[in-house]
Write a protein that binds this DNA or RNA. Sequence first.
DNA 1: CAATCAACCTACCGGTATGATAGGAAAATA
DNA 2: TATTTTCCTATCATACCGGTAGGTTGATTG
Lengths: 139, 139
Amino acid sequence: MLISTRGRYALRVMVDLAQCRSEDYVPLKLISQRQGISEKYLESIIKLLVKARFLSGLRGKGGGYKLTRPPEQYTVYQILSLTEDSLAPVACLSPDAAACPRSSRCPTLPVWQGLDRVIRDYLSGVTVADLMDGGACSV
Amino acid sequence: MLISTRGRYALRVMVDLAQCRSEDYVPLKLISQRQGISEKYLESIIKLLVKARFLSGLRGKGGGYKLTRPPEQYTVYQILSLTEDSLAPVACLSPDAAACPRSSRCPTLPVWQGLDRVIRDYLSGVTVADLMDGGACSV
DNA sequence: CAATCAACCTACCGGTATGATAGGAAAATA
DNA sequence: TATTTTCCTATCATACCGGTAGGTTGATTG
């Protein structure tokens, strides 16, 4: 599985906040209810988005989360990169992988490089704005 | 990680046998040495290839494994499908996944479907023959 | 027939990441 | 000061991955 639930949830949060775009901050509790994801688990995911400055959080009454940029400025690739340790389809292409001693004469390496390219190109070509169809803010 | 070592090893075995194409059967021991993969682990992977009739195995002296078809008739996608439980990039597209109750109004579903398509198309377009560069049977 | 070779089958095992849960501390507002 | 809500630190069960071990069946050769 290339994308874990963390990544899926993160993307859903971003689209959720984009669709219900308001100047106000949206509390975790509300996002959790709308998306049907446990508050506590969602919290750990949103933390990543805040750390990367994709969202800004505000504490206290009237607090919550909101996007820091317009939706078309977030690519799906950027979001998933935060939640997944690596988006590489195979271990040998993972950034934190030890260099493979066979790489210079590995006949299968080109397939993985090509696959990696195809995945990155595709995910980089889709933005959060592309996913907010109706624009309706559903409960 | 979309592709596990099982899948990578399976593909390497196929390319190995294709490059060292001979009418004779090639014993596991030799493949294991050439590829630098433990005999026992490799055995569990080759078992899958035999079961799917991608390889035929012959016991006893002079036995081993060999391809059942010419290399251009194996796509990378077919091979990886054997070793990976699912090549779907997300759980909700996995064949053995329970139907997601949100699918009808999930704004992120199209991304995953598109990604799945892109991956399948790419892997279906590459065959074992495409990976046997020199054709040299090394080591 | 006996010895050997090599595929085949079944079971086990440790590590690690995933998918959570729990409890509280800090900060902002009323 | 009381309430809201983010933020921070642990903990935990489960499952899968990568790998190991030992024995059984079947084919060939001397």
